[in-house]
Write a protein that binds this DNA or RNA. Structure first.
Lengths: 255, 255
DNA sequence: CAATAGATGTCGTTC
DNA sequence: GAACGACGTCTATTG
């Protein structure tokens, strides 16, 4: 239990229940230094841009990142209630006893204004972090697996092109079957739904149109670990096929 | 500049550069009290579930929310590099001089482990916030506008059903035109792309199939503020129509 | 609980 | 910068 409400070191600064003007100083310092800034307090939030919103007064956590990102988090949900993405410009000013943080985006034009009437904490941190996430189990890795082991689709399938661009979209994997038919494969890393079927249909139709009446047909294959009932029904009505592909994850290495 | 590194009040607690065991205490206290917990420090993060990932050592901001949400934020990007959604169960333990936070999800089974080797700050806050976001400019509001003012689609259009469920998906707005044709409208709040066209095509095909060879045809209309070139081309090839609908936002009230 | 589709989606990639 | 599609998407809604 302490009266001390100000902690400062070379790489960070923390203020407990700061005055508006002290808070303004720390936020501005953090913006200048390209720190990550964390605020906790009572605020209202207004947004105007692609849509518009009003968030009445309540206590939230606000994060400002050096890349221009702004996040306003309520006490629930994974998603920020309001935000601005990387590339925005933030500024802070003390006005009418409030700390007002404004973030501006250009193209599309958007403005986010956070007005704090009271703050429990204001802090800034110089974070160093050169590491990136290593992620396993993505769709593109599924495609790789099939290219290495095409018989998982069917005996005799020969992959030709990954990420084939057509006029109406990108085909995940394009190849031929034993009979010389063209095979279009759409992958889904999770359960495939109606949208996946529509997507596949679009590619198959496009390829049929492009190829015209050549020797051999065009088959459409949806490759996924599972598929919804109605998606499977639609798929069959459209003359398309489903191939069950189990997703395999590598063991997590001890780090 | 102070030696004191601990601040505690009724509704929150902040520790600066705490020991692992002190940090553990505060995090556990915060979990018990259903506080929002904010940690800043050096950590590695492992995730295993629908996919898996490894994030090597670096300094990040971690938030634990009382609904079970966990967020790990790097110094860039709007998205957390790792996370767990609401409904998960978190725990903390000091082990080998590290503070390890584990978050577990059931269905789908997922585990997130954050291992801090050093902490700049650990804090917990009891946030009260009963307010919800008021959002304007959503797709469903676009539909409302058209229901009130159907001539924005075309003279004589009569809306019948919003959110009509068919076997193969939900139609945004279903109605009839002056000639008695069925009209299926798909709305997009932003620029419409190929996916929107495929979606509309699916609904139109379904309705045609359901209706069989009745009097009057089925028209498909894509209503959006803009449309990509290839989407428009595909739309026309499929015999569908585009109607430009300007999105209108209410003026932001001063709050 | 599963399924469906929207989102101020965000993000990466390619043209 | 536009377009296209994935995402550990998340989230709301409805059967």
């Amino acid at each position: 239990m302490s009266e001390q409400r100000h902690y400062k070191s070379k790489s960070y600064e923390v203020l407990i229940e700061p005055s508006t003007t002290d808070a303004e100083k720390v936020v501005r310092e953090g913006l200048l230094r390209k720190d990550c800034i964390v605020l906790v307090g009572s605020c209202i939030v207004n947004y105007f841009g692609r849509a518009s919103s009003i968030l009445p007064r309540g206590e939230r956590i606000v994060i400002l990142k050096p890349d221009g990102t702004v996040l306003v988090h309520q006490k629930e949900k994974r998603e920020p209630v309001n935000w601005n993405p990387p590339g925005c410009r933030a500024s802070a000013r003390a006005v009418d006893g409030m700390l007002q943080i404004t973030s501006v985006r250009t193209r599309p034009s958007e403005v986010l204004v956070i007005s704090f009437d009271s703050l429990k904490m204001v802090s800034r941190f110089s974070l160093h972090d050169d590491e990136e996430l290593y992620l396993f189990g993505t769709e593109s890795q599924m495609v790789e697996e099939i290219v290495k082991n095409p018989s998982l689709i069917e005996e005799g399938f020969k992959p030709i092109t990954k990420e084939l661009r057509t006029e109406y979209g990108m085909i995940d994997l394009y190849g031929v079957d034993r009979q010389g038919n063209v095979v279009v494969i759409e992958f889904k890393r999770g359960r495939a739904g109606l949208d996946a079927v529509s997507q596949l249909k679009r590619y198959v139709d496009e390829l049929k149109k492009e190829r015209g009446e050549r020797v051999g047909g065009v088959r459409g294959v949806l490759a996924a670990p599972s598929i919804t009932e109605s998606a499977l029904k639609l798929l069959k009505e459209l003359g398309l096929e489903y191939v069950k592909i189990e997703r395999r994850l590598p063991k997590l290495e001890k780090a």
